[in-house]
Design a binder for these strands. Structure first.
Length: 605
RNA sequence: GCGCGAUUAGCUCAGAUGGAUAGAGCGUCGGCCUCCGGAGCCGAAGGCCGCAGGUUCGAAUCCUGCAUCGCGCGCCA
């Protein structure tokens, strides 16, 4: 892996602001499409304009730094704050507070957008957005409906998300499940953020592992005929292997008993792969994960031909021969050591096909590649990037998300597991026990690169300690309010001018402020490839609603005698519901209109 | 040994790309129950952000070193 001391900047984005893809839109002017421009962008544009005015008057000189709006920790510091005056102080040789004061004057009320500007602390500019602007933003949410969380941030750039890609040698276990949701949600986020996304599963149907599986099946097959069973070191112990062996016995009898490997290996391998893929697809299907394309390694090799790939590497001078093997000089691109691409017996290595695969992805026209890998594959990132670079691709086009392990517990009691011990926890078991929604939600609750403790007891709890339940309950509660209103004969609220003006409680305004940020949050989570940001945002939003609901249940209810307030609050609930439904949709978690009663669950089962 | 990741409240974790007084959930303690779903809500206590330096107006965040834990370090995939 690249180290921090130089020479490696091709592989690991070297500076902090490159840690995520800067996938465009950052420099886009915030002027067009006023109706969809976020408040944040509008405020930024005004500050930039004010700054330019100061520069014109010679108050500040030199290159102007980018205007950054910081979300203040305290509401007393406004809706946005900018430390721009602090940053300018040195080059302008002026006191930060003086610059801030000048900016404040130049800003004015920003065309009615701002209701108050304060110079605070060492020279922060605290900006208070006018209530009318927030309500206007809320109106846009209601007009857009569920699509409001979407944006054109990604400019339809084509992105390929490759994930799961588990070997077809057994069912998916719990860690695969985490990778599956992570990839699926990242793809969903990219889609919502305006990228053109494709989901892909790479099938490693070539090579040793599948041969080992074939031999394992054959051993089991022989065992079914009463032969002594002595598993070798490389052996797949699972029962699913026996199932395949049984099928083969039924179909072919003892035809392959005591036969040399050549007589049965291909058949047993193909049948094994076929059976495992069927199972994997079924598991993923039950988990709500679908792919646009399944790429077979075998077919890839047949299609692109590895000879050509090696020749291209050779033509670039990236290959040398030693001990009869062909080596890719990946160290030239920052890798730890050079890697064999063609073995002595002229068989290509796994690595060779992997370069070919990534080359193929780029050649298919994708501008960005996201790979969701288990953390144990971390060591491969450098060499794959090296391969891409050697073939003339931008290595920075590849983003690898490393997903850490999942440890399972029940009410704090950890469940021991290990593949070796044969105590692997299969994904389908977990989904069956905890349910698809809870499992998905928990798997993306934490940052991908942090280990995850999955408490299956908590996940199945029908109570609000359970974060999934909390969120879904919120959605159900909003639906329930709408149903109640309809039952009382209150007409469906319409978005007439002034319809939202009755929203005046601080909690209501705060919810609006949080709500209208959703598209930004989605775009940020997409660029960073960090689904957990959505989960945290959902918890924040729904937490505010539960709190609001309870706080005012005896005083300022949504449905009241005041038709103005009732209409405005119903509209707010409607917008919140839309946001929640859209976000849960991206997470692949259901947004129920009412929480199922326990007996209804039993009836379904 | 080398590389990668982690280290923040009793526990599980956030911290928006260097900003003002470091946050949430659970747990603990103290309040609020006749419902638009109490399957809740409000409040409080609880922190040398692993340790030591450095960079600058300013660091949990960036750099260096150290410590502890996890994962890698195949001509396996």
């Amino acid at each position: 892996m690249p180290s921090s001391h130089g020479g490696s900047h091709w592989f690991e984005p070297s500076s902090a602001h490159h840690q995520s893809f800067d996938w465009g839109a950052a420099g886009a002017p915030a002027t067009q499409m006023a109706s969809q421009t976020s408040i944040r962008e509008r405020v930024t544009a005004h500050v930039e304009r004010a700054l330019a005015a100061l520069a014109k008057d010679g108050l500040v000189t030199g290159a102007l730094p980018a205007v950054e709006l910081v979300p203040p920790k305290s509401a007393a510091h406004g809706d946005y704050a900018t430390p721009i005056a602090l940053a300018l102080a040195k080059s302008a040789k002026k006191k930060p507070r003086d610059i801030a004061e000048a900016l404040k004057r130049a800003l004015g009320d920003a065309g009615g957008l701002l209701e108050k500007i304060e110079v605070a602390g060492p020279g922060f500019l605290n900006l208070f957005v006018a209530k009318a602007a927030w309500l206007e933003a809320l109106a846009h949410v209601l007009q857009a409906g569920e699509t409001f969380v979407r944006s054109d941030h990604g400019k339809r750039e084509r992105v390929l998300v490759e994930f799961v890609s588990a070997n077809p040698t057994g069912p998916l276990h719990i860690a695969h499940g985490r990778g599956a949701v992570t990839g699926d949600v990242i793809a969903g986020l990219l889609d919502a953020a305006g990228y053109d996304v494709s989901r892909e599963y790479y099938i490693n149907d070539l090579g040793n592992q599948t041969d080992i599986m074939a031999r394992s099946i054959h051993l089991r097959y022989a065992e079914l005929f009463g032969r002594a069973f002595a598993p070798p070191e490389d052996f797949y112990p699972g029962d699913y292997i026996i199932d395949v062996a049984r099928e083969l016995k039924t179909e072919h009898g003892d035809r392959f008993l005591d036969q040399p490997e050549a007589a049965w290996l291909t058949l047993f391998r193909d049948r094994g792969i076929d059976a495992m893929l069927r199972r994997i697809r079924a598991d993923l299907d039950a988990f709500g994960v679908r792919f646009d394309r399944w790429t077979s390694e075998k077919e890839l090799v047949a299609r692109v031909g590895l000879d050509g790939l090696v020749e291209r590497l050779e033509a670039g001078g990236h290959v040398f021969t030693e001990d009869g093997k062909k080596w890719f000089r990946s160290t030239a691109f920052g890798d730890d050591k050079d890697r064999v691409v063609v073995r002595e017996d002229s068989r290509p290595t796994y690595f060779a096909t992997d370069i070919a695969y990534h080359d193929d992805k780029m050649r298919r026209g994708f501008k960005r590649l996201v790979n969701v890998w288990g953390a144990d594959h971390g060591g491969y990132v450098a060499r794959v990037r090296a391969g891409m670079q050697a073939l003339g691709h931008d290595p920075a086009a590849l983003k690898v998300v490393l997903v850490q392990m999942v440890s399972l517990s029940r009410g704090g009691e950890s469940v021991r597991m290990g593949k070796r011990l044969g105590t692997a926890v299969w994904l389908d078991e977990v989904v069956r026990e905890a349910g698809r929604d809870a499992t998905r939600y928990f798997f993306v609750m934490r940052r991908s690169d942090a280990q995850l403790d999955f408490d299956i007891e908590l996940a199945t709890k029908k109570s609000l300690d359970n974060p999934v339940y909390y969120a879904q309950m919120g959605h159900a509660r909003m639906c329930s309010i709408a149903r109640r209103a309809a039952a009382q004969g209150i007409p469906a609220p319409t978005l007439a001018p002034g319809a939202l003006d009755a929203l005046a409680l601080p909690e209501e305004l705060q919810m609006v402020k949080t709500l209208v940020r959703a598209p930004e949050v989605v775009a940020a989570a997409a660029d960073l490839c960090e689904p957990h940001l959505i989960v945290h945002y959902v918890q924040d939003l729904i937490g505010q609603f539960h709190s609001y609901y309870t706080l005012y249940k005896n005083s300022e209810k949504v449905i009241s005698d005041d038709p103005q307030k009732t209409r405005a609050r119903l509209l707010l609930c409607q917008a919140l519901r839309l946001a929640l439904a859209a976000l849960l949709g991206i997470l692949g978690v259901e947004a129920p209109e009412q929480m199922a009663a326990a007996d209804a669950d039993a009836a379904d089962a």
